[in-house]
């Protein structure tokens, strides 16, 4: 394994860890989505890296493009839900989401 691959994998892992850390650390709904986006960056990197490794970069790029489209739509839906929640609750605090208990 060459050094660049090692650094790429490390960077991807660090981004995922940053995302997970952010996910459990925040009360803010928007920041939760930012955390997920951070993790998705790492996944993008991993996908291109895998194409780079096995020489099938063209295929890897098509994956990345499809994935980016999906990512955007998820972000838009999430933002829409957050804005609607803000209109109901007056804030974007996860501690306010207590209507569902069992």
């Amino acid at each position: 394994m060459n050094i660049v691959s090692a650094i790429i994998l490390t960077a991807a892992l660090l981004m995922i860890i940053a995302g997970m850390f952010c996910l459990v650390r925040t009360y803010n709904l928007i920041r939760i989505i930012i955390a997920i986006e951070l993790a998705m960056k790492a996944i993008t990197l991993l996908l291109v890296f895998s194409g780079w490794v096995n020489g099938n970069l063209a295929l890897a790029q098509t994956f990345v493009i499809t994935m980016i489209v999906l990512e955007v739509i998820v972000a838009v839906v999430a933002a829409g839900i957050i804005v609607s929640l803000y209109r109901k609750n007056g804030n974007v605090d996860i501690r306010e989401l207590t209507n569902l208990k069992g």
Binding site: K41, T44, W52, L57, Q61, V64, I65, I68, V72
Partner: peptide, 13 residues
């Protein structure tokens, strides 16, 4: 070397 992915990442993400 992933040019098209790069363009998408830059513009969309």
């Amino acid at each position: 070397g992933a040019y098209w992915a790069s363009i998408f990442e830059l513009s969309v993400c």
